[in-house]
Design a protein around this nucleic acid. Structure first.
Lengths: 261, 261
DNA sequence: GATAAATGTGAGCACCGCTCTTGATTTTTG
DNA sequence: CAAAAATCAAGAGCGGTGCTCACATTTATC
């Protein structure tokens, strides 16, 4: 499983992609290397435009202009505006996933509470730092066209996979809270998420439907808290972090029983 | 203050707005009546375009064309595209509020659980029925420009007000759950939502910070659940309603203690 | 070096938001 | 009732967008 982390470009920071020698064969002629460079450049300035003006204002012509090429020239590298957006979505997913993973991995595996908090706080921090990227992946589907699931699925699952891993660790340690206390009815949960358990993400786990439902509740609350803050749905908040901490702890209680025993 | 219940047009269904006799004075000349009719028409077809193609694809020119007027003519009635969007946002808020209120009011006031469920289910039903409207008000802020808060606040608060009302009824009945069980730390909650209590929405209520935090947690989970389903953030779901019921009951447990006593 | 493929260039189409001018219509005022 | 003021429809026009096409240029391959 898990071959080499697939592609995972994440143009976010690193830009150089021109001098890579390629897998094996020929050493990449000057045309191929330039193409790689231009492709990376396009993604880079597209990312800049996204960060400053948002996805709605992203313009292929403007990107081309910034790169000193004629407007029509960019179509040699990008099929359409939608395709560029799809690439940005995937890139944002990877960026988020790596940020969350880094924070997550910095916590000892047996400290469940701290792991959950690290996960949640990293998500929030990333979202506040890249609001437009966050809007791109967790906001309303941008135009009429929606990103093809088969291209975003792998990247989009990366964050959830961390959560699932934690969830299973908690389950194995017998620290899952009582579903009934949360208000979860087993039968209803089974109908709601039962089939989800057969997807590749969960197939290898020993999670039950109710347990997955707990995880989904926690994740929904967490994501809702971040969305609410980034989009300012509750108006300007005096202390966003304090409120988030509250919601974070509530969400934590959905999947982790307090240690006191 | 508060003249005549503000405006609250809600073009959603009813369209006729031409033959209203006006408040008192003159009986509205043929020019004024036609203006009202045109304004209503614009909002109506804008709504249709929104429902079919989404906010991103909304075009003033297209609306004007549908109404048989020259593209520039629409600027006599609408200041700009953003202003049209603002109107649609406000209208959507009212539409949602009235839908939720209707469901909410159909439940006896002392049946807290049923009231919460009615509220949540009405929210979900409306969102699934008007996904683009939902995206408009609870999705990512559309373009770079965001709707002026002073114009959307009143309408946007209407739904929350219902929740606050229920929350206070529950508190008065002593049915609020133990905050500590939810994981809410009083001090943290006080910092996070303390200042919010002074806003007009909460000033007249006797809610404490922790109690408000519970309400926010419940609302965040509820809205997150709807958002997740409408935007298909978890991929295609086998039974969205069943999963929503699970999350609905979890959110309910944040504000209402089970009756068994 | 000739041929084929990939790339840069510019014109052009249809659409968009938005402004301005011109002339017609309606309302208000004297 | 007539003149003045406000309102309106209509069209041209500006700069912007996504995207296509024909053409010239450069690179890679035979």
């Amino acid at each position: 499983m898990e071959q080499e982390a697939s592609t995972q470009p994440s143009t976010q920071a690193s830009t150089q992609a021109s001098t890579i020698g390629g897998e094996a064969g020929r050493p990449l002629g000057k045309r191929a290397t330039k193409r790689l460079a231009v492709e990376a450049d396009i993604l880079r300035v597209a990312r800049e435009h996204l960060a400053t003006d948002g996805a709605a204002a992203l313009s292929l012509r403007a990107v081309a202009r910034d790169l000193g090429m004629v407007s029509s020239g960019i179509y040699r590298y990008v099929e359409s505006r939608d395709e560029l957006l799809t690439r940005l979505i995937i890139d944002s997913y990877w960026s988020l996933a790596s940020a969350v993973r880094a924070a997550h991995d910095a916590v000892p595996v047996d400290e469940f509470d701290a792991r959950w908090d690290a996960l949640g706080r990293a998500l929030r921090a990333w979202a506040l730092e890249h609001p437009h990227d966050f809007a791109l992946i967790y906001g309303s589907p941008v135009p009429d066209y929606e990103a093809p699931a088969e291209r975003t699925e792998e990247a989009g699952t990366a964050v959830i996979a961390l959560l699932v891993g934690l969830l299973e660790d908690v389950r194995r340690a017998g620290r899952l809270p009582d579903p009934d206390r949360l208000g979860l009815v087993a039968a209803r949960a089974d109908g709601g998420v039962g089939e989800l358990l057969e997807s590749p993400l969960f197939a290898s786990t020993g999670l039950h439907a109710v347990e997955l439902a707990q995880g989904i509740a926690a994740w929904t609350l967490l994501l809702g808290a971040v969305t609410s803050e980034v989009f300012a749905q509750l108006g300007p908040l005096p202390d966003g972090e304090a409120l988030f901490d509250c919601l974070l702890s509530v969400s934590r209680r959905c999947v982790i029983e307090p240690a006191g025993d």
